[in-house]
Design a protein around this nucleic acid. Structure first.
Lengths: 172, 172
DNA sequence: CTGACTGCAAACCCTTTGCAGACCG
DNA sequence: CGGTCTGCAAAGGGTTTGCAGTCAG
């Protein structure tokens, strides 16, 4: 199941460097949480990571896993798949089309593209399962959000991952 | 905001036919909920649809909206964008890659594809905003799920939208 | 009429947060 | 040691469900 051990080690070293560089502390929990993700071929969710880490650190709590995951994401050590905590959206346009999704506000608009519609399933996928379809969407910043930003207004962004206040901030 | 009225009417007629065909009842709520989605250019979430419908049917409840939405989806009258109620997944592979996602169990595996990596942002997108990236993923059925299904075993599928029991089923 | 549909309220799941104590550097 | 991190427990947001009454066909 786990990928090549050398690769995991490489990622771990990089991760430790990143942590130190950012002035964050290297705790057992963080190490194990990162190891759990780095050594998995699937893309685990918080719950799965939690269960894996629990085997080595029986006292970790699920919320530490969550906090750590967002921190690692902020540090650029891991990435997230799919939208986080977004509610489902519905679409009555049943014709083949693509979406332009705003990374700031989550707005999704339709567009057509012959190029994207013509995509064929790559051969590399064959050994993973029987492919049904390729979905291609474009991500970017919609005009409205771009205008807001140009106006210098700070608005809450779409994946507004709240950071825990530091004691410095609390004191204010 | 709303799209072309003729198009909305066309969709409404089709919708009514689908409802009748499936033996489902055509209620005010269903009609208004469908209209709300069909006449929106954006892809609203349940909350937004609820607010829209409320203007015409002040007594609708949010849960009716949800139940109706999943029913319409089951009937094929509308589609959902993105995964529904799935928890976020994490990925320590920071190199450019694509995902094969199993539509049954949600499993996501990495693969590389020069073709998909080479995608350019279509010109049609320009008027929607400033595009940043194209994401292309492949959807299908993974080997494990295919084997299960071949073995004839019924398993809970990934988007296992629970259906409300009919009184027939309840009686059992 | 009768079973499918609705509204209500309470439950549920995943995720977040305030707090006080633990621990890294 | 000081401030960051953690565990706990309780809150939060989005979605689901059991129930009893309502309504479409």
């Amino acid at each position: 199941m786990p990928i090549n051990k050398t690769e995991v080690d490489r990622r771990l070293i990089l991760f430790k460097a990143t942590l130190k560089e950012s002035g964050s502390k290297l705790t057992h929990q963080r190490l194990e949480i990162f190891r759990a993700i780095a050594s998995s071929l699937e893309h685990p969710d918080a719950e799965a990571i939690f269960r894996t880490v629990q085997r080595r650190l029986p006292t970790v709590s699920l919320d530490t896993v969550y906090r750590t995951l967002w921190k690692l994401r902020d540090l650029g050590s891991i990435a997230t798949l799919g939208p986080r905590h977004e509610s489902v959206r519905f679409d009555a346009n049943l014709e083949h089309h693509h979406h332009f999704v705003c990374v700031r506000c989550g707005l999704a608009r339709d567009f057509m593209s012959a190029q994207l519609s013509a995509l064929r399933v790559p051969a590399a996928v064959r050994r993973l399962g029987s492919a049904v379809a390729v979905r291609a969407d474009v991500y970017g910043v919609c005009d409205r959000c771009a205008r807001r930003e140009a106006a210098g207004q700070k608005r809450k962004q779409f994946p507004s991952y709240k950071r825990r206040k530091t004691s410095q901030e609390k004191r204010i």
